[in-house]
Each structure stands twice: as structure tokens, then as C-alpha cells.
Write a protein that binds this DNA or RNA. Structure first.
Lengths: 342, 342
DNA sequence: CTGAAAGCGCTTACAG
DNA sequence: CTGAAAGCGCTTACAG
């Protein structure tokens, strides 16, 4: 069938563009054009190439294309977690925005670790990405340096940057924390606890918003805060609510830094016969699907995670195309979901 | 610093292996070896190369490596969903098994669609993957053909194949469905409904297991089944439990094909004042974290999803290395979690 | 242990 | 609209 390669050949045995061209009776580069920029090729030749592609079952070699064009069509996405629904929704948005444009998405899970982020980025830089989507605003020195020297466009997701040079898409975590706290204060709660885990950048900022609101209302009391570095889980929320109540028995509300903790806290209250919100109000953050359905339904803050992904990817695409972005910071906002639990 | 390229150059400006070699005063291929197979290079030269890499900030070009070696070090993973915790756990297992070995994982989300799976695979084949991890046993003709002609090693995840040629890691979905149903029958329930959504391959098999158990017990009744193609959500479970009860008022138990549906069904019962399990027993499938904490806690089947990912990837690695696998089917089993709801 | 040359499979200026 | 040649940045037999 095909000509036998010489003894030194390292050919992979796959169908190549050259064989497609030969089959179609055109030059290799005409075949290349017919595939990548068909509008530049006459209908006749284009059709012959397309036929050859079909008949031979040609699959382009992405590595060769990337090497020759020095465009990888790869977008690197780094998220801190895959088990957290928030970030899988972000990924969905990214995929939806990028898939139609032929990008290949490299997803890295940093597990909330700066060291891991650095390691992943190091590896992914080998793929010569056209753009990078990062979670959060603050990164290690080494990561910053890699990013700076590579000159690859970067968009930061989930929060809004104060630095005009840093493109960011999300909403103000601090403000969201403040708003939720303010909601509780306005409802008349006085001894409002703050329960946090993981202690990532966003949690810290929500805590700042909480403190500011408590300060403003003259309700601040450091003993009302319980912040632990363990991963956020339902089980942890169940545990922490017990600790908080025993530390501060007159607590009348708890702002959980995310819904998982809030769910665990509510389940625990149910088991202990503590009425929510009558004896203890509990609210969360993120508006996971269960929050609307639990009993009591959970007061929380709905966050535009899918849109964060979608808009981040869209902004990144425009930068890659060399366009000057209309806005360097895209504020997608958030919404208080007032329900039964607080 | 570096020699200026001639006018026709398309050089990317990145530091190359050649410049590292020059800097270290060795041949390019010695520099290559010092990086990829350091044990073949004398300590002296190796050190000089390492120093040059460090000083120049060299980042290998993965595309060039892939092209030259015809080894991509890419593993393609196709899962039907990213919002389903089950598959994110599978992905975690895969990452943990593969990351230490320098593989790059390409994650594709098929959204439970054969057409989408085909499209994704088509694109991902351009990356010349060393191996492929697929969810489920049955795939479209087009996908089968791509797989066959490419000769790339494939491992199927989540279920056990009857075909000895097809490598699979998981557990018997049919048997798990049978076991859960049998558990309910043994508990004395007679009018046991089956609530299913999505209707993917695994759901269908669990339904088969359910039917078999009901048949064996002489309890079969087609009216007990409610199967809809919508995605599984808490909201859907809440809706379907109402429909099932109005269709078959004397239903005394419901086997939900996954935990999301079960949670929704339980929340709905709480709202309607239907006591679970006293008036209606409800059980789920997968043992999501909330199942242990809800009130009532949810009887369900714990599935080894993380291990499915980990063991699938491990099996794939061994095949890629050319080893004959000890077992073509790895049965990871499942566990009934008997709790309060059934 | 080290190296010169060829080659992997594409695309890119350039010319016609 | 079409094409011959060079080049992208690596690794691979092969030889010494």
C-alpha cells in the first residue's frame, strides 16, 4: 500500500498530511491549507483533499502542528479542587466558552496548595499554552515569575483584583461576606458567629467582610470566630457547630463560609434538637442545590460560578486574539438567597 | 546573547535544548540525555547541563518531544459528567495514579452523549494519546472503530465487561441493583418502587438488577418503575416521589438509582409530612457525603469510585508498558450502607 | 559515556 | 490559487 520507509525511519505508521496530499494529487501545503484555511483553496482541490482525508482516515498530529506554528491551542486551567461543586461549575463554563474554538483545556487540580500550583504550572508550561486561567488573585513568587517571564496571557477567576494590570473575573468576596453578615444583623441577630474551614484566599476575604460588618454594628467579638484549616465538609460543619455553641453558648446565628459547613451544622442541630432558625440561625455561602431543598431551606449567597468560568474564558480568548479588553475587571456580582434557616 | 536567527526564522524566542547544550558546552543530544535519562550521562556533564537549565530557565517543549519520540505521554479520560461527584472522585483517583509518572491528562466531558463522546475522542486523538480511559462499556460504532484502528490501549471504567478482550475496572452495576433491592425485600417491603433518571448505561443495569430481584421475590409490577431521561438532581427526586406516590399509593419503599434523587425524595417527604422510613422507605445509590448526615440518614450503596479511577489508571499504565495484565477485569465491589431511611 | 545527522509531521514566509 | 523548501525543537538509531 504505502511506500516502505527506509531502515532509519521512525515513522509512526499513522496517516500523514503528506500521504493525504499524495492521494489527492496536490502539494502538502495545499492539503494543509485545505484543512486549516479552506477558503484559500479552490473548491476543486479542496474537495479532493477532503475526499482523501475521508478515505485515508487522516487524523492531524497536534504536536506537529503546535511545533510548526508555535501555537499550541492549549489553555491551562488551575482550580483548587475538583470535589467542590463550585469549581466544577466554573470548569463547565470554561468548556462551554472554549470548546467551540478548538482549544484543548488542560485542567490542573492544585488542592489548595501553592506548592502544587507551582508544580503543575511548571509541567503545563511545557505545553506552551496560549493562555492561562488561574483561581484567585494571590500566587507564590515562583508562579508569578513563571507567568511574567512566559508572557502568556492570564485571567484570574473568582475575585476582583485591585491591580489594573491583572485581569480578573468574579465578584468581591469581601463584599459578599459583608453583605451576608449585614443581612443577619438586619434580621436582629446579635451574637453572630463565623465558621470557616480550608482558609483559602476567598474564605479569608469573606471573614474580613464579616469582621467589618460586625465592627460597624458594634457587635465584634473575636470569640465568635472559629476558623480551621481542614477541608470543608458536611462532617466538619457538624463538628464545628458543636464546638462553637459550647464556646459561646449565647450565639444566636452562624455565618458558615460555605454551604457544606452550613448543611453539616444544620444536620447536627436537627440531631441535637436545636431548632433552626428559632434557637440558632445558620446561613451558608454558594447556594449549592441542596440548600433550596433542605428543611429548613438554607439562607445563603448565590455565586455566579458558571458565568465566572464562561466570562473568564471569553476574556482570555479576546486577549489571546490581541484585543484590548473593554474591562480588566469583570464584576459578576452575587445574590442573597433569603430562605428559612436565617 | 544568543545568535540572531536569519530572516526566515520562525523561532519562538523560548530557550531551547540547543542553547542549553551550547551553554553547557555539550552536544544537544547529551543535553537531551542529561534531562531524560541522566543515568546515561557522566556526573560532570550532567551537572553542567543541569546548571545551564537552571541559569537559562529552560522549559522543555512538549510538542517537540512528542513529535520526535512519537510518545505523547498523554492519557485521555472521558467521563459523562463533571458535576456528578462520582466522576470527580474517579478523576481524583486517576490523577493520583498518573501524576507521579509525568502523564498529561486530557479530561473530556461527554455529558452523557454518544455524539459528544465521538466528537471529543476525535479531537483528542489528534494528541496521539498513549492510552484512553473510558466510562462505561458500550460506545457508538464510530467510537469503537476509532479505538480499534488506533490501537491505543483502552480501559473501561465503572462496570465489568463480559468480553475478555475489553479491559474493565469497576463493579457489577446489575448486581449492585439486585443487592439493594434484595436488601429492601429482606426488610419486609413489598411494594418497592424504582426511581431512575438520566438513563445512562449504569442506571439501566441497576434497573435490570432491581427487576431480577423483584421477579425472584414474586413482587414484580411494571407500575412500580418510574424512569425519566432528565439529569439526576435533588429537584427531580423531589418531583418524582410525588408522582410515584400518586401513581401507586400503596408503595412502601423506593429504590432511587442515585443519592441525588434519594435526597430530593426525602426532602419532599419531610415537607409533605410523610415519615421516612415509617410510611415510605427510601434508599439511594453511591453514598454521597450528605447521606450519612441527613435526618434520616440515607441507606445506600457505597461505590469505590476513587479506587475505580486509581486502579483503572494503574491497569492502563501497565498495558502501556507492554505488560500482560494479571486480570482483564478488576472487580472492586460495593457495600450496602444500612442506615435509617430504609 | 558522547556526538553528528536525520527525522518526527506539520506550517510559514516567499515566490509565482 | 498553488507549491518547493526550510524550519519548529526535540529524540533516535548508529557509530565511536
Amino acid at each position: 500500500m504505502s511506500k516502505s520507509p527506509n531502515g532509519k525511519s521512525r515513522a509512526s505508521g499513522r496517516v500523514t498530511l503528506a500521504s493525504v496530499a499524495e492521494h489527492a494529487g496536490v502539494a502538502t501545503m495545499t492539503a494543509s491549507r485545505a484543512i486549516s484555511q479552506p477558503e484559500l483553496v479552490s473548491p476543486l482541490l479542496r474537495e479532493r483533499v477532503e475526499k482523501a482525508v475521508e478515505e485515508l482516515g487522516y487524523v492531524p498530529n497536534r504536536a506537529a502542528r503546535a511545533l510548526a506554528s508555535s501555537k499550541s491551542n492549549v489553555i491551562v486551567v488551575l482550580v483548587p479542587s475538583l470535589s467542590n461543586t463550585v469549581f466544577t461549575a466554573v470548569l463547565q463554563g470554561i468548556q462551554d466558552a472554549l470548546d467551540p474554538h478548538g482549544y484543548q483545556i488542560l485542567i490542573g487540580n492544585t488542592r489548595y496548595s501553592d506548592a502544587e500550583e507551582e508544580k503543575l504550572l511548571n509541567v503545563y508550561m511545557q505545553s506552551n499554552p496560549d493562555g492561562i486561567l488561574l483561581s484567585g488573585l494571590s500566587h507564590s513568587k515562583a508562579v508569578q515569575k513563571m507567568l511574567d517571564t512566559s508572557r502568556v496571557p492570564v485571567v484570574s477567576m473568582m475575585d476582583l483584583s485591585a491591580d489594573p494590570q491583572q485581569l480578573s473575573v468574579g465578584f468581591s468576596q469581601t463584599q459578599a461576606g459583608h453583605t451576608m453578615t449585614r443581612y443577619l444583623i438586619d434580621k436582629g441577630y446579635k451574637r453572630i458567629g463565623f465558621m470557616a474551614a480550608q482558609l483559602d484566599e476567598r474564605t479569608i476575604k469573606r471573614a474580613e467582610g464579616y469582621r467589618k460588618a460586625m465592627d460597624e454594628a458594634g457587635l465584634a467579638d473575636p470569640r465568635l470566630e472559629l476558623m480551621v484549616a481542614d477541608p470543608s465538609t458536611i462532617a466538619l460543619g457538624a463538628e464545628l457547630v458543636g464546638r462553637m455553641l459550647s464556646l459561646v453558648p449565647d450565639m444566636d446565628a452562624i455565618f458558615c463560609c460555605n454551604d457544606d459547613l452550613a448543611h453539616g451544622a444544620i444536620f447536627q442541630c436537627q440531631r441535637r434538637g436545636i431548632s433552626v432558625p428559632r434557637q440558632l440561625a445558620i446561613c451558608g455561602f454558594n447556594d449549592l442545590p441542596a440548600s433550596a431543598w433542605m428543611n429548613p431551606s438554607v439562607t445563603t449567597i448565590a455565586t455566579p460560578r458558571y458565568r465566572v468560568g464562561y466570562e473568564s474564558a471569553t476574556l482570555l480568548r479576546s486577549v489571546i486574539r490581541g484585543e484590548a479588553p473593554a474591562h480588566t475587571h469583570v464584576d459578576l456580582g452575587f445574590t442573597v438567597m433569603a430562605r428559612e434557616s436565617a
